[in-house]
């Protein structure tokens, strides 16, 4: 099992009802972790319209997670 440091923004933060959590998971990748979280929080956003940041860098969805990783799922950005 891995301990993952999760931070939520925008719609995901509202749906999760929190900005931050440390989650113990067996999900091997960010993609699998997002699937797991969708079951918990009913996230409406499809991964196809999002990106993921691992340790504050954009990363592939299939990158293997390591214990202690900081993960942020990035909803469609709307700055400017």
């Amino acid at each position: 099992m891995l301990n993952i440091d999760l931070q939520y923004f925008a719609q995901l933060q509202d749906a999760a009802g929190r900005a931050h959590e440390i989650r113990t998971t067996s999900a091997p990748t960010a993609a699998a972790l997002y699937d797991e979280l969708r079951d918990v929080y009913s996230f409406a956003l499809e991964p196809a319209c999002m990106r993921v940041a691992i340790n504050a860098a954009f990363s592939p969805w299939e990158q293997p997670l390591r214990d202690g990783d900081h993960v942020v799922f990035i909803p469609p950005v709307t700055g400017g």
């Binding site: 925008a10 509202d14 950005v77």
Partner: peptide
């Protein structure tokens, strides 16, 4: 750039802007 805007409307309703 990972920035998100939540619009606050004059009616008091707030909403995340879905996309650009």
């Amino acid at each position: 750039v990972p920035i998100w805007k939540k619009e606050h409307y004059a009616t008091g309703v707030t909403e995340w802007v879905p996309c650009h």
